[in-house]
Protein backbone atom coordinates (compact mmCIF):
# COMPACT_ATOMS: atom_id res chain seq x y z
CA UNK A 1 0.00 0.00 0.00
CA UNK A 2 1.45 3.28 -1.07
CA UNK A 3 0.66 6.38 0.89
CA UNK A 4 1.37 9.53 -0.98
CA UNK A 5 3.00 12.14 1.21
CA UNK A 6 0.93 15.24 0.67
CA UNK A 7 0.11 18.23 2.81
CA UNK A 8 -3.09 16.49 3.86
CA UNK A 9 -1.38 13.31 5.05
CA UNK A 10 1.08 15.37 7.07
CA UNK A 11 -1.70 17.37 8.74
CA UNK A 12 -3.64 14.17 9.34
CA UNK A 13 -0.57 12.64 10.99
CA UNK A 14 -0.13 15.69 13.22
CA UNK A 15 -3.76 15.73 14.36
CA UNK A 16 -3.83 11.94 14.69
CA UNK A 17 -0.78 12.00 16.92
CA UNK A 18 -2.29 14.84 18.97
CA UNK A 19 -5.53 12.89 19.44
CA UNK A 20 -3.81 9.64 20.40
CA UNK A 21 -1.17 11.27 22.60
CA UNK A 22 -3.87 13.22 24.42
CA UNK A 23 -5.85 10.03 24.92
CA UNK A 24 -2.83 8.18 26.28
CA UNK A 25 -2.16 11.12 28.58
CA UNK A 26 -5.73 10.95 29.91
CA UNK A 27 -5.47 7.31 30.94
CA UNK A 28 -1.90 7.35 32.25
CA UNK A 29 -1.76 10.47 34.41
CA UNK A 30 -2.77 10.16 38.04
CA UNK A 31 -3.74 13.78 38.43
CA UNK A 32 -7.34 14.21 37.34
CA UNK A 33 -6.90 17.87 36.45
CA UNK A 34 -3.99 16.94 34.18
CA UNK A 35 -6.17 14.22 32.66
CA UNK A 36 -8.79 16.86 31.83
CA UNK A 37 -6.12 19.02 30.18
CA UNK A 38 -4.90 16.05 28.12
CA UNK A 39 -8.50 15.46 27.10
CA UNK A 40 -8.60 18.98 25.69
CA UNK A 41 -5.52 18.19 23.57
CA UNK A 42 -7.24 15.05 22.31
CA UNK A 43 -10.47 16.88 21.50
CA UNK A 44 -8.49 19.51 19.64
CA UNK A 45 -6.90 16.81 17.50
CA UNK A 46 -10.38 15.52 16.65
CA UNK A 47 -11.40 19.06 15.63
CA UNK A 48 -8.47 19.12 13.20
CA UNK A 49 -9.53 15.76 11.75
CA UNK A 50 -13.06 17.11 11.25
CA UNK A 51 -11.58 19.91 9.14
CA UNK A 52 -9.64 17.37 7.08
CA UNK A 53 -12.93 15.52 6.56
CA UNK A 54 -14.41 18.71 5.06
CA UNK A 55 -16.72 19.25 8.02
CA UNK A 56 -15.73 22.71 9.25
CA UNK A 57 -18.99 23.28 11.13
CA UNK A 58 -18.41 20.12 13.17
CA UNK A 59 -14.90 21.36 13.89
CA UNK A 60 -16.33 24.66 15.13
CA UNK A 61 -18.76 22.78 17.38
CA UNK A 62 -15.92 20.62 18.62
CA UNK A 63 -13.95 23.69 19.67
CA UNK A 64 -16.88 25.74 20.99
CA UNK A 65 -18.85 23.07 22.81
CA UNK A 66 -16.40 20.30 23.63
CA UNK A 67 -13.24 22.26 24.34
CA UNK A 68 -15.06 25.39 25.49
CA UNK A 69 -17.85 23.97 27.60
CA UNK A 70 -17.61 20.21 28.21
CA UNK A 71 -13.98 20.48 29.29
CA UNK A 72 -14.95 23.18 31.80
CA UNK A 73 -17.76 20.96 33.09
CA UNK A 74 -15.32 18.07 33.50
CA UNK A 75 -12.81 20.26 35.35
CA UNK A 76 -15.56 21.54 37.65
CA UNK A 77 -16.66 17.94 38.12
CA UNK A 78 -13.16 17.02 39.25
CA UNK A 79 -13.06 20.00 41.60
CA UNK A 80 -16.43 19.04 43.09
CA UNK A 81 -15.14 15.62 44.12
CA UNK A 82 -13.33 15.18 47.36
CA UNK A 83 -9.69 15.99 46.67
CA UNK A 84 -9.30 13.06 44.29
CA UNK A 85 -5.90 14.34 43.24
CA UNK A 86 -4.41 13.94 46.70
CA UNK A 87 -5.48 10.46 47.70
CA UNK A 88 -3.09 7.95 46.13
CA UNK A 89 -4.60 5.09 48.15
CA UNK A 90 -7.81 5.52 46.18
CA UNK A 91 -6.14 4.30 43.03
CA UNK A 92 -6.32 0.57 42.64
CA UNK A 93 -3.44 -1.47 41.25
CA UNK A 94 -5.33 -3.19 38.47
CA UNK A 95 -4.52 -0.57 35.84
CA UNK A 96 -2.30 -2.88 33.78
CA UNK A 97 -4.85 -5.71 33.77
CA UNK A 98 -7.65 -3.29 32.91
CA UNK A 99 -5.58 -1.92 30.01
CA UNK A 100 -4.98 -5.43 28.63
CA UNK A 101 -8.68 -6.34 28.88
CA UNK A 102 -9.86 -3.11 27.27
CA UNK A 103 -7.30 -3.18 24.46
CA UNK A 104 -8.11 -6.86 23.84
CA UNK A 105 -11.81 -6.13 23.57
CA UNK A 106 -11.15 -3.22 21.24
CA UNK A 107 -8.90 -5.32 19.00
CA UNK A 108 -11.60 -8.01 18.76
CA UNK A 109 -14.13 -5.37 17.70
CA UNK A 110 -11.70 -3.77 15.26
CA UNK A 111 -10.82 -7.07 13.59
CA UNK A 112 -14.52 -7.89 13.34
CA UNK A 113 -15.17 -4.61 11.59
CA UNK A 114 -12.23 -4.77 9.15
CA UNK A 115 -12.19 -8.50 8.30
CA UNK A 116 -15.26 -10.71 7.80
CA UNK A 117 -14.16 -13.13 10.53
CA UNK A 118 -17.56 -13.43 12.17
CA UNK A 119 -19.68 -13.46 9.07
CA UNK A 120 -19.99 -10.76 6.45
CA UNK A 121 -20.11 -7.17 7.52
CA UNK A 122 -21.00 -3.91 5.90
CA UNK A 123 -17.64 -2.30 6.48
CA UNK A 124 -16.96 -1.52 2.85
CA UNK A 125 -15.49 1.89 2.30
CA UNK A 126 -18.27 4.04 0.94
CA UNK A 127 -17.70 5.90 -2.29
CA UNK A 128 -16.94 9.53 -1.63
CA UNK A 129 -20.04 11.58 -2.29
CA UNK A 130 -19.69 14.71 -4.39
CA UNK A 131 -22.10 16.48 -2.02
CA UNK A 132 -20.47 18.57 0.63
CA UNK A 133 -22.61 19.97 3.38
CA UNK A 134 -21.55 23.49 4.10
CA UNK A 135 -22.74 25.57 7.00
CA UNK A 136 -25.02 27.30 4.48
CA UNK A 137 -26.73 24.02 3.53
CA UNK A 138 -27.06 23.17 7.19
CA UNK A 139 -28.78 26.46 7.94
CA UNK A 140 -31.24 25.91 5.10
CA UNK A 141 -31.91 22.33 6.20
CA UNK A 142 -32.59 23.43 9.79
CA UNK A 143 -35.52 25.69 8.93
CA UNK A 144 -36.82 23.94 5.82
CA UNK A 145 -40.38 22.63 6.22
CA UNK A 146 -39.51 19.39 4.46
CA UNK A 147 -36.29 18.75 6.31
CA UNK A 148 -35.31 19.28 9.92
CA UNK A 149 -37.52 22.00 11.23
CA UNK A 150 -39.34 19.77 13.72
CA UNK A 151 -36.16 18.28 15.24
CA UNK A 152 -34.81 21.82 15.39
CA UNK A 153 -37.74 23.00 17.49
CA UNK A 154 -37.71 19.85 19.59
CA UNK A 155 -34.05 20.55 20.34
CA UNK A 156 -35.06 23.75 22.08
CA UNK A 157 -37.50 21.78 24.26
CA UNK A 158 -34.68 19.37 25.08
CA UNK A 159 -32.36 22.25 26.01
CA UNK A 160 -35.04 23.77 28.22
CA UNK A 161 -35.64 20.42 29.92
CA UNK A 162 -31.90 20.07 30.55
CA UNK A 163 -31.81 23.58 32.00
CA UNK A 164 -34.69 22.88 34.39
CA UNK A 165 -33.16 19.54 35.35
CA UNK A 166 -29.76 21.07 36.11
CA UNK A 167 -31.38 23.73 38.30
CA UNK A 168 -33.50 21.14 40.12
CA UNK A 169 -30.42 19.04 40.86
CA UNK A 170 -27.85 21.67 41.74
CA UNK A 171 -29.88 24.50 43.26
CA UNK A 172 -29.41 25.29 46.91
CA UNK A 173 -32.50 24.35 48.82
CA UNK A 174 -34.07 27.55 50.13
CA UNK A 175 -35.92 25.82 52.94
CA UNK A 176 -32.65 24.62 54.44
CA UNK A 177 -31.21 28.06 55.13
Amino acid sequence: MNIEITFETITFAIFGVLTLAGGIGVVTTRNLIHAALYLIVSLFGVAGIFILLAAPFLAAIQVLVYIGAIAILIIFGVMLTRGMTHLPERFNRQGGLAAVVVIGGFVVLLVGVILPVWGPNGAVAAEAQPIFMTTRDLGIALVDKEQFVLPFEVASVLLTAAMVGAIAIARDDESRD
Binding site: V65, A69, I70, I72, L73, F76, G77, M79, L80, L159, A162, M163, A166, I167, A170, R171, D172
Partner: peptide
Protein backbone atom coordinates in the same frame (compact mmCIF):
# COMPACT_ATOMS: atom_id res chain seq x y z
CA UNK B 1 -23.14 26.05 42.21
CA UNK B 2 -20.13 25.97 39.93
CA UNK B 3 -21.58 22.85 38.32
CA UNK B 4 -24.87 24.62 37.74
CA UNK B 5 -23.11 27.56 36.12
CA UNK B 6 -21.12 25.18 33.88
CA UNK B 7 -24.26 23.31 32.76
CA UNK B 8 -26.10 26.55 32.02
CA UNK B 9 -23.08 27.70 30.03
CA UNK B 10 -23.11 24.51 27.95
CA UNK B 11 -26.82 24.87 27.23
Amino acid sequence: RFYLIAVLFIL
